[in-house]
Design a binder for these strands. Structure first.
Lengths: 158, 158
DNA sequence: CCACCATTTTTGGGAAGCCAAATAGTTTTC
DNA sequence: GAAAACTATTTGGCTTCCCAAAAATGGTGG
């Protein structure tokens, strides 16, 4: 079973290795926010499950299997984060929520969301999104341009 | 601490009470997918925490506090589900994902998402959404109507 | 009214994670 | 090259949630 917790450790290791070339108990302890003993135990478990290269007192790196999982999570994180930012959510909150959701969301949903983010990003500053943000701020629904006349829009704006 | 598990039990009780007027160990056991003993223990805990009205061997209902939590979760569930369905995700998957995400997502994110769903629903069949679905199916980005001429759109469609 | 059956609770024990303290292994310093 | 300082592992024990089996409860038919 790949628990959320296992995924969180894998992500932490991935980030640390990206920066330093290897991860150690102390690094992961700080990153995940648990004590050394918890990390040490988890290293044994992750090693048994084939996610990390680990020998006692040694430097830790991800195996191919660990790398694959880390890459998947990283992609999910980015898409979720980008999506939330598109909606206008604060970056910090977007990040935190992405961090949680990436572990529970189904592949099918991620596929849609990925395409959605691509779609939105391919148009710079879409009108409908501007309208949504206006709605979010003011609570007022801008009328749909397809159902109203130009003069009406202008009179509303003046 | 309100764990995900506690929330899942509360939701199950809420649904059952809505149908039968009260919930019993057996009902919740089936709904949550755990044995009787787990439910019985959880009933004690939920009662201690003030979420349910419970006496041994009796009918269970939610307290005001439990009701409030259940209502929050139910609203979140609906918004998440609706949002996923808007994106074109299968109803069953939308439901499953909503079930997971509702326990971990932050209030701020839910507020945005709620408004977003309202926004989309207030326009029937928005053009941009039709374009997204086209993009999802075909992988082709329809050009933005603001940057191209009408004749160009027509010629593309013929 | 009482025995039976369904339901619920209790009991004993397990897995996953965590911590603090004790121990052990490295590295650095002098 | 040994003591000191740092880092990692082990150990014992905790919490939350679970299960299976045993014990208790309560409603119902005879």
């Amino acid at each position: 079973m790949v628990t959320t917790r296992i995924e969180q450790y894998i992500e932490a290791i991935h980030e640390i290795v990206k920066k330093k070339g290897y991860a150690r108990v102390k690094d992961v302890s700080e990153s995940v926010g648990v004590g050394f003993s918890a990390v040490s135990e988890m290293f044994s478990k992750l090693s048994e499950k084939g996610y990390i290269n680990y020998e006692k007192h040694g430097w830790v790196t991800l195996t191919k299997k660990g790398e694959k999982l880390a890459t998947k999570l990283s992609k999910r994180h980015k898409v979720l984060r980008d999506f939330f930012i598109i909606l206008g959510i604060d970056e910090k909150v977007a990040d935190e929520d992405a961090c949680e959701i990436e572990h529970v969301v189904r592949k099918e949903t991620m596929d849609r969301l990925t395409k959605f983010v691509e779609f939105v990003k391919s148009h710079e500053d879409p009108l409908w999104l501007k309208r949504f943000k206006e709605y979010y701020e003011t609570g007022k629904l801008p009328e749909c341009p397809r159902t109203i006349k130009k003069t009406k829009i202008q009179s509303r704006n003046n």
